[in-house]
Simulated scan of single mutants.
Amino acid sequence: MSATLSPHATAQALPYPALAQQIEAVLRDPSVRVPPRLVERLANGASLFVMPAHDAQVAITKLITFVHDNATRGLPSIQGDIVVFDVATGSRRALLDGPTVTARRTAAVSLLAAQRLVPHPAGPLLIVGAGVQGRAHLDAFHAGLGVREVRVASRSRASADALVAHARALGLQARAVDDADAALADCPLVVTATSAQAVALRGTPRPDAFVAAVGAFTPQMVEWAPGVCQHLARTGTLVVDTRDADHEAGDLLQAGLDVTALPSLADVVNRTPAWHGPRPGGPVFFKSCGWAGWDLAAARCALAHAAP
């Protein structure tokens, strides 16, 4: 029997701690297969993403569009669905809301990386970019790390104030800041979730900082200044979400860094020879670009949540 989940029902089926656990399980599962995603460029800079993945029991395809300036139209930047199939019978098991899955699984990936790599999980947390991903990361870090204090920087003061109000409704201490670069000095946790159409940060994170950079997921997109990325490569530890970042991590590619030489989150989780641990006394910069394996983890989490 197939279930069609609304955005609310999709979110309810994907609690952040459980979703982070499923993401780790996917990284440990040798049956998981994730073909290269298809990205078709559309008119006016839009993109169509087709992202399949499967394991021994479940097969999924994510079909979404991305239009970076949809906010000006009063529309979400990401729209679409994830179709979940049973491998044994080929029958459809669920239809999940694509934007909700994208927001929550991206934040849960950052949460898993932070659980493994953060020296100071309590924060304060600086969020740069107060859109969907900014809110998802606030919720994920609150639920999974116990963050109690957050600062929000955004080009839109109204958006920043709305996210601050959401944080306060959760019982967090929160305030908006005008200068994200200056706020880096006070925040050992940093999430950048901007539209990544131009450099948003030129400051240097603290030596004990953990940064999750999620805004840029194509070679042309960028959030962090190239000089900052080069400094982090010299003094800290760079980790990418998957090997797809080798050709998608705009921040690092535009800095002229050899992304192929960097460890991935799978290396961290499985402690492969590529992972030597974070450099002592240096920041950790986690670059996230996206992967259909994360959507497979979300499907597994949703199915487990629905099981009697």
Rank of each mutant, 00 (worst) to 15 (best):
G215K: 10
A299P: 08
S77E: 07
S2A: 14
W275P: 01
R234H: 13
S195V: 04
A113Q: 11
R104D: 07
H247L: 08
D246F: 07
H8T: 09
E248P: 01
L201N: 09
W291L: 08
G250C: 00
R37L: 07
A213W: 10
G131V: 04
G129I: 00
G80I: 10
G203V: 05
G98T: 02
M51T: 10
T204F: 14
A25T: 13
P7R: 02
A114K: 11
S31F: 08
P278K: 07
M51A: 03
L145C: 06
V211G: 03
L112K: 11
G281C: 02
D179N: 07
A174L: 11
R116V: 02
A3C: 09
R279W: 01
A306T: 04
W224Q: 10
L117Q: 13
G203S: 07
P119S: 15
V259Y: 00
L125M: 08
A245V: 02
V32Q: 09
A297K: 03
F66D: 05
A183F: 11
T237E: 05
R234I: 00
D186P: 07
A274H: 15
I82F: 08
C229E: 07
V39K: 14
F286E: 00
H54S: 15
N70F: 09
S154Q: 11
A11V: 04
L262P: 02
A140L: 09
C229T: 03
G293H: 05
L112D: 06
A3T: 08
I64V: 15
Q57D: 13
A108G: 13
R41N: 15
Q57M: 03
A299K: 06
S77F: 02
K62Y: 10
H137F: 07
A122G: 15
G134D: 09
A13V: 05
A153T: 04
C187R: 06
P226Q: 06
G146F: 13
P263A: 12
G256A: 02
G74N: 11
A213E: 12
V32D: 14
T65A: 07
M51L: 15
A18D: 01
